[in-house]
Computed example of a mutant assay.
Amino acid sequence: MKRIVIFASGSGTNAENLIKYFQSKDMVSVDLVLTNNPHAKVLDRCKRLKVSAFSFNKIALTETGDVLNLLKASKPDLIVLAGFLWKFPEAILNEFPNKVINVHPALLPKYGGKGMYGMHVHEAVVANKETETGITIHYVNEHYDEGAIIFQAKCDVRPSDSADDVAAKIHQLEMEHFPIVVEKLLSNNDLK
Results as ranks from 00 to 15, higher is better:
3 R>V: 09
4 I>P: 14
5 V>F: 15
5 V>L: 14
5 V>E: 14
7 F>R: 07
8 A>R: 12
16 E>A: 15
19 I>W: 01
21 Y>I: 09
21 Y>H: 15
22 F>Q: 04
26 D>P: 10
26 D>C: 07
27 M>K: 15
30 V>F: 12
30 V>I: 12
32 L>M: 12
38 P>E: 03
40 A>I: 03
42 V>T: 02
43 L>D: 03
45 R>S: 00
51 V>N: 06
53 A>V: 00
56 F>M: 04
57 N>T: 02
58 K>D: 11
58 K>A: 08
60 A>N: 10
60 A>H: 10
61 L>H: 00
61 L>F: 05
62 T>Y: 13
65 G>I: 05
67 V>W: 07
67 V>D: 05
68 L>C: 00
68 L>P: 03
69 N>W: 07
70 L>E: 15
71 L>S: 01
72 K>W: 09
72 K>M: 09
72 K>T: 12
75 K>R: 15
76 P>N: 06
77 D>W: 13
78 L>H: 10
78 L>C: 08
78 L>A: 09
79 I>A: 13
80 V>L: 15
80 V>D: 13
83 G>T: 12
86 W>T: 03
88 F>S: 11
92 I>F: 07
94 N>H: 14
96 F>D: 04
98 N>K: 15
100 V>Y: 14
101 I>M: 10
102 N>K: 10
102 N>L: 08
103 V>P: 13
104 H>M: 07
105 P>C: 13
108 L>R: 11
112 G>I: 06
114 K>W: 14
114 K>P: 12
115 G>E: 01
116 M>T: 10
117 Y>L: 05
120 H>V: 07
120 H>T: 08
121 V>A: 08
121 V>F: 06
123 E>M: 08
124 A>G: 07
125 V>P: 05
125 V>C: 07
126 V>T: 01
128 N>C: 02
129 K>V: 08
134 G>H: 08
135 I>N: 02
137 I>P: 06
137 I>A: 03
138 H>P: 05
139 Y>G: 12
141 N>S: 04
142 E>Y: 10
144 Y>M: 04
145 D>P: 07
146 E>H: 14
150 I>R: 01
151 F>Y: 11
151 F>P: 07
152 Q>N: 01
155 C>A: 01
160 S>L: 00
161 D>R: 01
162 S>K: 03
163 A>N: 02
163 A>C: 05
164 D>F: 04
166 V>Q: 03
169 K>H: 02
173 L>A: 02
173 L>V: 02
173 L>Y: 03
174 E>I: 01
174 E>M: 01
178 F>H: 04
179 P>E: 11
180 I>M: 10
184 K>T: 14
187 S>D: 13
189 N>W: 12
190 D>A: 11
190 D>T: 09
